[in-house]
Amino acid sequence: TTVKLGDIKVTFDNPEKAKKYAQKLAKIYQLTVHVHGDTIHVK
């Protein structure tokens, strides 16, 4: 599962960890989390 934020891409083996990371980023940057299959976009 890949978390994308602009040019930053972080890949996790564990989808749950990816989701938590995405939510953490979203909170920090006051953005929202969008899940598209294996990719989680923070924008």
Rank of each mutant, 00 (worst) to 15 (best):
K4T: 09
G37Q: 05
K19A: 09
K43E: 11
K20T: 06
F12E: 00
T11Q: 11
T1G: 04
I8Y: 15
L25H: 00
K19E: 08
I28F: 11
G6H: 09
Q30E: 10
G6F: 08
H34Q: 12
I40L: 08
H36I: 15
I28K: 13
H41F: 13
T32H: 07
E16A: 09
P15R: 09
G37K: 05
A22V: 06
K20V: 08
T2K: 05
L31R: 01
D13M: 10
T2D: 04
A26W: 04
A26R: 05
Q30H: 13
F12L: 02
H36T: 12
F12Y: 01
K27T: 08
F12H: 00
V33E: 01
V3G: 02
V42S: 01
K4D: 05
K43R: 13
V35P: 03
P15D: 05
N14D: 14
N14E: 06
D38G: 08
G6Q: 04
I28T: 06
Q23W: 08
H41E: 14
Y21H: 04
T32Y: 08
Q23E: 14
T11V: 13
Y21C: 14
Y29W: 07
I28Y: 13
K17N: 10
I28E: 09
D38M: 10
I40H: 02
D13C: 13
A18S: 00
V33D: 00
K20D: 10
T11F: 14
T32A: 09
V42Q: 01
K17W: 10
K9R: 12
L5Y: 09
P15Y: 14
G37P: 03
L5C: 15
L25F: 02
H34A: 11
H34M: 12
Q30D: 14
N14I: 05
A22I: 06
H36A: 12
K20P: 00
H34P: 00
Q30I: 06
T32I: 11
Y21D: 02
G6R: 08
G6K: 06
L31Y: 04
K20A: 12
K20Q: 11
G6P: 02
V35A: 06
P15H: 11
Y21R: 02
I40G: 03
D38W: 08
V42F: 10
Y21T: 03
V10T: 04
D38C: 10
D7K: 15
I28S: 04
H34R: 07
H34E: 14
G37H: 03
T11R: 13
L25D: 00
A18H: 01
T39H: 09
D7A: 14
T32V: 13
K17E: 14
G6D: 03
